[in-house]
Design a protein around this nucleic acid. Sequence first.
DNA 1: ATTTATTTTTAGATTTGTCTAACATTTATT
DNA 2: AATAAATGTTAGACAAATCTAAAAATAAAT
Lengths: 223, 223
Amino acid sequence: MKYSASKENHLKAIFHLQQEHGIVTTSALAAALSTRPASVTDMLKKLKEQRLLIYERYKGFRLSNEGRKAAVLVIRKHRLWEYFLVKKLQFGWDEVHEIAEELEHISSRKLIEKLDSFLGFPETDPHGDPIPDSQGRLQTRRMIRLSELPLNKTVLVSAIGSQTPEMLEMLNYHQIRLGTRLEVRKKFPFDDSLEVKVRNRPPVTLSARVAKNVLVNDDEPAT
Amino acid sequence: MKYSASKENHLKAIFHLQQEHGIVTTSALAAALSTRPASVTDMLKKLKEQRLLIYERYKGFRLSNEGRKAAVLVIRKHRLWEYFLVKKLQFGWDEVHEIAEELEHISSRKLIEKLDSFLGFPETDPHGDPIPDSQGRLQTRRMIRLSELPLNKTVLVSAIGSQTPEMLEMLNYHQIRLGTRLEVRKKFPFDDSLEVKVRNRPPVTLSARVAKNVLVNDDEPAT
DNA sequence: ATTTATTTTTAGATTTGTCTAACATTTATT
DNA sequence: AATAAATGTTAGACAAATCTAAAAATAAAT
């Protein structure tokens, strides 16, 4: 089945929101897509028609099996292209999101399988997010937000939650990237900012907003 | 400037038709795009609005400078992606056209320049067509159709005119590809078919239709 | 040079995806 | 429980890209 770019964007966004909140609301989706609630409702009807969505009006919604499959495929394409852009074309990890937003809608199945093979079947994209395999299996990993990490516990950065270029550029500036080993030295309850220490470098202070979007795991080497 | 996929397709098709006939007609363009003359007229108005086209109603049309620049950029993107698909992803040269038709509409300028560099600045695509450089310069080469080649003159296949998968698959079957050295042994005036000889292989007969679409040049090695 | 045929354009409709403004429903507040 | 606030949906409009059918302009044929 082939879906329009707009439909794919909706499916993908629903999938991501679902991961966090289980059920998705019209306005949350509208916010995620920078569109209007009315437009979302219109699209929901079409997705329901095509049986990609479990949806009853005024009651929130979630993806059907079909819908989840389609969403995961889009995510697979997005992350493979990001990997390609960073590892083969030498883009910075903070520059690739927008381009991958376009590339993810290229439809050829064969293209994706060959790209995957060309890239050596990578397991995560340049932001540390896992790449679904060709069967749509998406491995989940136990990670916590940096903001929730106890003091003085050493961990590795394993994914970045929100991928605005601004935030990625900022992390880049502080030399915090995937696989960086760090620990939290101090928490400031006033504004929930925290001081982070990376080996051999002066400590840096991160806002609560940033700390919530840096995901870390328990000391196993990042692939 | 960024144009819709449909506009880019129109510009590209006009460019190709112009190469052959100088001036382009509504119905020729409609045929080339598998659309209707009425739809073409609609689009022509928009392209004229944007100053991409020199056009007065009922009088045929051709690209403006702006329009030619835009068309050449699309062609550049198309051919670079084709090269990528064949040389990096191991697609057969007869499978890539459709996929490249989608990829050519990805808009990032930086992506194309980096792709070009990654590929080593190739000069021709897998069908032997020249790839415009980043300034939009398109080198033209003196080639003739196989159908017009005198008997017993040895030449190299340097481009394929029409790229229907069917024809490419057929040439593939006869092991005729870019750079293949061959000569015409015999011409049959009855149906204008001709017998072609490749070194170390039994002669094959090609129809006039095919021979018109195989372009050859004068014995210089194809890059 | 008329008439006929072909080509091109216009007029009006359709589809997809979006919007605003008004209305409906649900949730929160007193 | 009644009312207010927030959230969600419908109705109607619009832009882009296409279509069919009818009209207009050009080209071809007698």
